[in-house]
Design a protein around this nucleic acid. Sequence first.
RNA 1: GGACGGCUAGCUCAGUUGGUUAGAGCGCCACGUUGACAUCGUGGAGGUCACAGGUUCAAAUCCUGUGCCGUCCACCA
Length: 1092
Amino acid sequence: MNKPLPPAYEPKDYEEGIYRRWEESGFFNPDRLPVRPDAPAYAIVMPPPNVTGTLHLGHASMLTIEDILIRFHRLLGERTLWLPGTDHAAIATQTKVEKLLKAEGLDRRKLGREAFLKKVEEFAVASHDTMTRQIRKMGSSCDWSREAYTLDKTRSQAVRSVFKLMYDDGLIYRGERIVNWCPRCHSTLADDEVEYESRPAILYTFKYDENFPWPIATTRPETKLGDTAVAVNPADQRYQGLVGQKLSADFLGRHLDLKIISDVQIDPAFGTGAVGVTPAHAQIDWQIAEKNGLPAIKVIGEEGLIRPGFGEFSGLTAVAARDLIVAKLKERGLIIKEEPIENNLSLCYRCGTAIEPLPSKQWFIDVNKKLPESKSARARQLAWRGKSLKEVALDVVKSGQVRIIPERFGKNYYHWMENLRDWCISRQIWFGHRVPVWHSKRGKVELILVRHGQTDWNKDGIMQGQTDIPLNGNGQESAAKLAAKIRDEKFDLIITSPLKRTSETAKLLNSYQVPIIEDDRLKERSYGRFEGLKTEEILKAHPEIKTFQVNGSNYWIDVPTAETYGQLKARVMDFLGEAKKKYQGKKILVVSHGDTLDMFYAALNDLPDEKAYGRFSLNMHLERYALETDEVYVGLAAPAAGGDWEQDEDTLDTWFSSGLWTFSTLANQPEEIIIKDGQLSINSEDFKKFHPTAVLETGYDILFFWVARMIIMTVYAIGDIPFRDVYLHGLIRDEQGRKMSKSLGNVIDPLDMTDKYGADAVRLALVSGGTPGNDLNVNENKIAGSRNLVNKLWNIGRYLLVRRETEPPDNGSAVSETLAERWIARKMKNLIESLTADLLAYRFSAAAETLREFTWNDLADWYIEASKFENSASAAVLQRRLGRDLLVLWHPFLPFVTEVLWPHHRLDSDSELILVAAWPLAAAYDQFLSGQPNVQAADFSLIQAVIIAIRNLRAENKIPPAQKVRAIIYSEKYAEQLRSQDRLILNLRTGLSSLEIEAGHLAKRQAGWLYASLSGLEIGLAAPDFDPAEQRAALAAEISNLAKRRAAQTQKLANADFVQRAPAAVVDKEKAKLAAIEEELASRQKKFAEQG
RNA sequence: GGACGGCUAGCUCAGUUGGUUAGAGCGCCACGUUGACAUCGUGGAGGUCACAGGUUCAAAUCCUGUGCCGUCCACCA
C-alpha cells in the first residue's frame, strides 16, 4: 500500500487482479452482500448475448449501462442482483455452424440431427466461454453463480411449462397458414424476422391464355400456376358487373379455374387493375382467399422448387420456372408489357435468402383469443380477465405499470402490438427447444392404396362408373402379379369398393386371409346415363362437356346427371375421417377405382382436385400413406405410456425462451418451476425477492423482437409484469454514423480498446454523449479522451496522497478555514445531490459530464491549485472526505481505477472494497459549511474572476509568462475580501511579483499600467513597455460593447408588455442587469474621459 | 404510404417546465518545466441553433409547413 503510485495509470497492471478480487469477495451475489435485512431488492437480468461469437461495442455499451446501474444501487445499499446469461439463438447459431461446416464440405443433413447438434453445442460452449471472459473484461459486476442459458435444464422446464399452459388454455394451436419460409434455413420465420430490401425486378403484364379477357400484372409469373381468382377493386369501372363470375384459363397447358372477386386492397392504378390471386404464395392473397373461400394451390415447395404435378415446370427452381414461363408466354405472344420496377424483396434476416411465402402446418400463439379467467390475485389486479394477450400487453404499458424510456417508443410499441398477428413459434431447424408435443405413433393408420385390375370395358374405352363389370383375364393376371410382390406384407384389413372389379382384386391380393370389408364410399364416381357408352361417342354428342387432358386421357369436369368430383371427394373425406378414428395403429389396404383414388390422392396430399386427376389411371401401382391422427400429448416430458409416441420434429422460435427470461432465470432448479391452478409458479427465494425486475436495459432495435414478447409471455405465465422500467439505449455507430460491420471494415473491437486504453476509458466513452434511444457515434479518439480523464483522476488521487504525507496531520477541525474549502464543499454537496438524481433518472451522460466538470475544473484546476498556497488546518479532513467521495461517485463509471485508488483513500469506517462502499451523503458537507456564516462560498467566484481577468490581461497584451509584474487592485466594496485571499491571487498562474489592494476607486489611469475592470473593482498591472494607445482602444471597444448591451436592455424594459406580463422575478432580474451594465459603463466612460 | 428521430462550433454531442451575452469534450491557434498529471497547464478563435411562417412581452426550446439525413412499420400483386 505504501509503494509509490506511478505517474500514469496503467490499466493492464490492475484490471485482472481487481476483477478477481471482486469475484472472490462474493459481493456480486446479493445473498452475500453486507446489506440490512430490510434492504430493498434491485435486479436486472442481462439481455443474454447470442452464443454466436464475440462481443462488439454494442454489447460493451449495454454492459456498461447496466453495470453503472447495478454498482450505483449496490453503493446505495440495496440488495442488488445482476443476472448474467447467454442465448442459444437458435437460427443464428445454427446458421453460423452450418457455414463453418460448409467450409469443411459438410452439411447438417449428412451429419444427422444428433451429430449436428453436438457440433452446435461445442461451438456454443466455446463462444460462451469467450464471451463470458469478455463480459468480465468490461468490469461487469454480475453474479456468475446464477448464470443462465436459454437452453439449459431450468430454462427448458420453463419453456415446456409455459407451452403446456398455453396449449391447455387454447392459446397455442397448430394450423395450416401461410408463413415466411426460408428455403435455405429450411424453416419458418416470424413476421419480424423478415427484412425487406429494394431490388430491381420486372413487372410482366400478360394474359393467362389467348381467350382470357384481360391481362394481369405480376413480378412472379411462376406463382401464377397457383392462381385461383382474379381480384379487382370494387370501385373499378372496367370490371363492373363481372365480379362473381367464374372463368377458366389454359395457362401454358395448365387448367386454371378463376373466380372474379373484388377487394378494396387492390389498387386500380397498379398494372391493369386486375390481379391474379395466388393464395398459397402471398400474404395478402391468402387473406383475400380466406375472405372469399378460395382454394389455395401450393406451387412452390419447401425446397424452393416447383412441386410435382406442374408438368415441365415441376422440379425447377422458382427463378428457372419464371424464365421458362416468360419464354413460353412470349412464344405465344401473351406477354403484353415488361417494365422494370423497384420491388421490395423479403429476405431472411439471418442468411439473406429470399423468403418464399407458402402455406405450412405450424404452431402458433393466438394473440387475439380471450384469456381464461385467472385465479391469481395479481392477475386480477392486471385486469386481464376476458382480454387477449395483445390487449393485456397493451394495457400494462398504457397504464404505466411498465414504463418505457424514452417515452416516444411507447407509440411504436402500441402500433406494433395493435397490429400483431398470431405468432408462428415453430421452426424447422434442429438447434433449439424441441416443441414439447408428442404425436401418437400408435394412433397412426397406414393406408396402402391400389386400383383394381383391367375389365373389358376398360379395354374398350367404355364408360363404367358404378356399372358392375368383373375383371378380365388381363386384370386378374396383373392382380396376381402384384399379389406375389406384396406377399410378405401383412395387412390388418382390406377395405374395398363392393363392385366386382375391386372386390375380386381385393381377394387376389389377400395373401394372409385377413378380413375384407366392403365400403360403398369407395365406389367409382357415378356417370349416370353415360355409363355403358364409348367415351368418344359421348363427347361427340355432348360438346358442352368440359374436358382436359392429362397424360393423354380426357378428364371430365362437369358431366350432366353424374356425380361431381366434389361429391366424390366428400365421400372420400368421410371415409378418411372415420378410418382415422376406427383403425388406429392398423395397416390397411384400400382397393378402389381411378377417380375415387384420385380424390384420395388430392385429400392426402392436400392438393386441389384437378391436380390429382389421372394419378391412378394407368397401372396397378401402390401408394402408401400414414394417416396422421390428431392424437397429441403436450407435457413436460414424453408420456410414460410406452414407446408409441414421437416428439414433434420442430423446435421453438428462440424468442419463446428468451420471452421467459426475467422469471425463468430466477429459478435455480427445474423443480422450482411448477404449474399450479393453471398458473405458473416459481418457487424460489430469488423470484419472491427480485421479480418483477427493476429495469430491462436493451437496444431499441429489439423492442419488438424481445421486449414485447417478454411482456406478453410474462403477463400470461406469471400474471405480473416482467420489469417496471424499460430503458432503451441507442445503437453504437462509427464516427460517420454508419453501422459497424465487417464488410465496411469500421468495426471497433472492444477488446482492442480495453487493451489499449483500459476498460474504464471504454466504459466512459460509451456512456458520455449518449441519450436514451439515440444512436451514438464513437471513434477511437473519444476513448482516448476518456482515458485522459481516468488518468487525471489517478493523479488527483496521487496528489492527495502526497499532500497527506507532507502536510501536518489534521487537527480534527471539520470547519473549513478557507474560502476555497467552503466553496468546494458546497460544490461537492450539490454534486452529490444532482448526480444521485441523474442516475436515478437514467441520465448517465449528464451524470458523467457533471462529474467530469467537477473533477477536472472545480476540484483539480481550482481547489487543489488553491490549496497548494493555503496553510489550512482543516484541509486534511476535507480532502480525505473529498477524495473518498470522489472515488465512490466515479465508481459506477470507472470501477477499476477507483478500486485501485480506494485503499489509499478510504476512511477507517469504510469497507475494504469500494465495490460495497457507501454512497456519499450530501449532508456530510454541512459541517464544512457551518463556520463564518458571513462569508459566502459564492464569494470564491469573485476571486476566480479576478484571477482570470489578470491572466487575460497578460495574455491579451502578450506579457511573457516569465515576466513577473506588480499589480494593484482598487475596490471599495471587496477590498477586505480580496486581501484575505491575496495569496491565491498572487500565486494561481497570475505571474505577479507583488499585489496591493486599495480600498477605493482608481483615481486616474497611469501611464505604463494596464487596466481591467470588473463590476465593482479595477485591476492594474505594471507594464512599462506597453503602448497606452492600445489600452485606450481596448477600453473604447469595451464601452461600445456595453453601450450596445445597455441599449438592448433598456429597450427590453421599456416594453410595457414585457413589464406587465412577464413574471415579476424575471423583470426584477432584468432590471438588476441593466443597473449593473449602467454602472460598469459609467465607470469606463469616466476612465476614458480621464485618459483623454 | 404511415410513424418516429436528427439537423446547435471543424467533429461528437448537451441544452430539463420558453427567461443572463447558447455550453462541454475533441480538434485548431498562441503561450507555458510553479511541490500530482505533457494522458498536463493558461489564454484564445470558432455558432443566422437546417429553412420559411406563426404564437408570445420573450423561441434553439411551443405550433404549422418545407428540405436534407437516418430508423422503424406496412407494402408493391
